[in-house]
Amino acid sequence: MPRSRITTIGFDADDTLWQNETFFRLTQDRFTALLADYADPDHLHDRLLAAERRNLGHYGFGVKGFTLSMIETAIEVTEGRVPTSVIADLMAAGREMLEHPIELLPHARDAVEALANTHRVLLITKGDLLDQERKLAQSGLGDLFHGVEIVSNKTAPVYAQIFARHGDGADRALMVGNSLKSDVIPVIEAGGFGVHVPHGLTWALEQADPPEGHPRFAALPDLGHLHDLVSRMK
C-alpha cells in the first residue's frame, strides 16, 4: 500500500472480530436434518439461499431474516405440509443464535487496542440493531471504539458519510473486514483503503473477487498483522 496519513480505522464485526458464520452453518445443518424427509441437502441449501436473497430487502441482514427465510423455505418445500413442530424447532434455533455467547477471533482485542491509541477506531457493522448491540456489549470491546455505526447495508455512499462524520473523510480512512463485497470494495470505491482479513467461512451472498493490484487494497492472514500494516502507511 502507498504511504498515507490514515487517521480513522473502521472494523467490521461479524467474522472479523468475533465468530458469526459458524453459527449460521450449524443452524443450517439443523434445518437440513429437520427437513431430510422432504428434500435433499443441496436442494434445500439452494432454496434457502434463494429465499435469503429475495428477503434481504424486506428483513435485512441477520438472524431474524435468516430464521424467517428458513420457515418460508420449509413451507415451500413441503407444499404447506411442514409440521408445526418443525416450525417451532426453527424458531428455537433462531432464538439460540440470538443468545449464543460471543467468541472473539484471534488478535481481535490486541488489534483494536493497539490502533485505538493512535487512531480513531470505529465499529461499522450491518444487521439487526438489537443483536449487534448485544454482541458488542458481550464482546468487551465496546469502550475501545470512538464510534459505532450499525447500518442496514454497506455501500460506498454509506462509508463516505460515516468517515466524513467521524473522521477526515474516506481518503484518510481504512476499513478492515472479512467480506470483500461489504468491507473492502465499497470502501475503495468511496476513496478509502480496504484491508481484507479472510474468515474460513463466507456466506455465499458476501463473496466477490478481490481487487488485485489496486493501490488501496491489501490482504492479511489475520488481525495480528494489521498494526504493522498501518504503521508502514504513516
Score class of each variant (00 low, 15 high):
residue 1 M to D: 11
residue 2 P to R: 12
residue 3 R to L: 01
residue 4 S to V: 14
residue 6 I to P: 05
residue 6 I to M: 02
residue 7 T to V: 00
residue 8 T to D: 03
residue 10 G to Y: 09
residue 12 D to L: 01
residue 14 D to S: 04
residue 15 D to E: 05
residue 16 T to R: 05
residue 18 W to K: 11
residue 20 N to P: 02
residue 20 N to A: 12
residue 23 F to C: 03
residue 24 F to M: 00
residue 26 L to D: 15
residue 26 L to C: 11
residue 27 T to W: 04
residue 28 Q to T: 08
residue 29 D to V: 00
residue 29 D to R: 15
residue 30 R to I: 00
residue 30 R to F: 03
residue 31 F to E: 13
residue 32 T to E: 13
residue 33 A to V: 10
residue 34 L to Y: 13
residue 38 Y to P: 10
residue 39 A to T: 10
residue 40 D to Y: 06
residue 43 H to V: 00
residue 46 D to P: 03
residue 47 R to E: 12
residue 51 A to D: 09
residue 52 E to D: 08
residue 53 R to Y: 13
residue 55 N to I: 00
residue 55 N to Q: 00
residue 56 L to S: 09
residue 57 G to L: 08
residue 57 G to F: 05
residue 59 Y to A: 02
residue 59 Y to W: 12
residue 59 Y to H: 14
residue 60 G to Y: 14
residue 63 V to L: 02
residue 64 K to M: 01
residue 66 F to K: 11
residue 66 F to T: 04
residue 68 L to C: 14
residue 69 S to L: 02
residue 75 I to S: 02
residue 77 V to K: 04
residue 79 E to M: 00
residue 79 E to P: 03
residue 80 G to Y: 07
residue 84 T to G: 15
residue 87 I to M: 06
residue 90 L to N: 10
residue 90 L to V: 09
residue 92 A to I: 06
residue 96 E to Y: 03
residue 97 M to C: 12
residue 102 I to N: 15
residue 106 P to H: 12
residue 106 P to L: 00
residue 108 A to N: 06
residue 110 D to Q: 14
residue 118 T to S: 07
residue 118 T to R: 04
residue 118 T to V: 01
residue 118 T to D: 02
residue 121 V to C: 05
residue 122 L to K: 13
residue 122 L to Y: 14
residue 124 I to Q: 07
residue 125 T to E: 03
residue 128 D to H: 13
residue 128 D to C: 00
residue 129 L to T: 15
residue 130 L to I: 15
residue 131 D to F: 05
residue 131 D to T: 14
residue 132 Q to R: 12
residue 136 L to N: 14
residue 136 L to P: 14
residue 138 Q to S: 10
residue 139 S to T: 05
residue 140 G to A: 01
residue 140 G to F: 03
residue 146 H to A: 06
residue 148 V to P: 00
residue 151 V to L: 07
residue 153 N to C: 01
residue 154 K to H: 10
residue 156 A to M: 05
residue 156 A to E: 09
residue 159 Y to K: 03
residue 161 Q to C: 02
residue 161 Q to E: 14
residue 162 I to F: 04
residue 163 F to W: 08
residue 163 F to Y: 13
residue 164 A to H: 15
residue 167 G to Q: 05
residue 168 D to N: 11
residue 173 A to C: 02
residue 175 M to A: 06
residue 178 N to L: 01
residue 178 N to E: 04
residue 180 L to R: 09
residue 184 V to A: 01
residue 184 V to T: 08
residue 186 P to T: 08
residue 190 A to Y: 13
residue 190 A to M: 08
residue 191 G to N: 08
residue 193 F to W: 14
residue 193 F to H: 14
residue 196 H to L: 01
residue 197 V to E: 04
residue 197 V to I: 14
residue 199 H to K: 10
residue 205 L to G: 07
residue 209 D to Q: 11
residue 211 P to W: 02
residue 213 G to T: 07
residue 215 P to D: 07
residue 215 P to C: 09
residue 216 R to H: 14
residue 218 A to S: 11
residue 218 A to R: 15
residue 222 D to C: 13
residue 223 L to Y: 06
residue 223 L to S: 06
residue 224 G to K: 12
residue 225 H to Q: 11
residue 227 H to R: 14
residue 227 H to Q: 12
residue 228 D to R: 09
residue 228 D to V: 07
residue 229 L to S: 06
residue 229 L to C: 08
residue 230 V to K: 13
